[in-house]
Write a protein that binds this DNA or RNA. Structure first.
Length: 273
DNA sequence: TAGTATGTTGGCGC
DNA sequence: AGCGCCAACATACT
């Protein structure tokens, strides 16, 4: 699931539950998940370290340790990084687990195993290639309409794919892009080049607004990824093909753009600008 | 039942 | 360089 809003919620929960805790033991049942060295070496680097802060850029997140190392993660499609307390319900598909003091455990669970963890040496986090190639965070350092407009002149791609380009701005995924374009009244398939400066100004203003809304809308209770059993769909259009558009009642349509399911309202988001 | 869809990203080939 | 496609993997749905 996890796009910027869900990663932000994950980081907030980690701040509440992991800060000040010390790693007592490491179990990495799936060696593919934790990258950057042998399991033995990585375990030695983690054990005994206190967790001092948590952060995020785009869809990447990290826990900083007292010695300056960072445990960096990406949840990809189905990953979760959570702290479980003694007695709490266990999670399935645990790929990495670090026992903490106070009976807690830092757990990385991921059915599809696309998610990754890296252990970065002090001062090296920003230089991980994965983080180094990210553009500014879509919530913390949003692009201006002028910057979007300029970037759009350099591509032939649909506007939706430009929004999802992590090297331009980081954090927007398939759902965010579609929901933002719905709020902006712009068809996802339109060529990015064809948007006016005024339309980009609208998109630039809507992006942080939408992200703040999505964070708030999913901040209650246990974070459930869309599609997961028991997850509620808070989104306006996502996975609502055939249902009435919340603004005009026209049936929501589904199309495939960039090999991804894309939902839009044909009336609120006309193809011709 | 087999085929298709599912949030992401990186690599490959044109 | 830019862009499209596909793999990585597990599960649910039609």
């Amino acid at each position: 699931m996890p796009e910027l809003p869900e990663v932000e919620i994950t980081v907030a929960r980690l701040r509440e539950r992991a800060l000040g805790r010390t790693i007592l033991a490491v179990e990495a049942p799936d060696a593919r998940i934790l990258q950057g060295g042998s399991p033995t070496e990585l375990t030695e680097r983690l054990v005994g370290r206190q967790i001092t802060s948590a952060g995020r850029k785009g869809k990447y997140l990290w826990l900083k340790l007292a010695d300056g190392q960072s445990l960096v993660g990406h949840l990809r499609m189905t990953g979760k990084l959570v702290v479980r307390e003694a007695g709490e319900e266990t999670i399935p598909y645990v790929r990495f687990r670090a026992g903490l003091d106070g009976g807690r455990a830092l757990v990385f669970a991921d059915p599809r195993r696309f998610g990754r963890l890296w252990l970065a040496a002090p001062g090296e986090r920003e230089h991980l290639p994965e983080l180094a190639r990210l553009g500014p965070d879509a919530l913390e350092e949003p692009l201006t309409g002028e910057q979007w407009h300029a970037a759009a002149q350099r591509t032939q791609r649909p506007v939706k794919l430009l929004l999802m380009e992590q090297s331009l701005t980081s954090g927007l995924g398939n759902i965010c892009a579609a929901e933002i374009l719905f709020r902006a009244g712009i068809a996802p398939r339109r060529a990015a080049q064809s948007l006016s400066r005024a339309e980009w100004d609208r998109i630039a203003a809507i992006i942080p607004e939408y992200l703040r809304w999505a964070i708030a809308a999913q901040s209650h209770g246990d974070l459930k990824l869309i599609g997961e059993h028991g997850a509620e769909n808070v989104f306006a259009l996502y996975r609502r093909a055939g249902q009435p558009c919340p603004q005009c009642g026209t049936p929501v349509q589904r199309a495939v753009i960039g090999q991804r399911g894309t939902y839009f309202c044909p009336r609120c988001q006309p193809e011709a600008g």
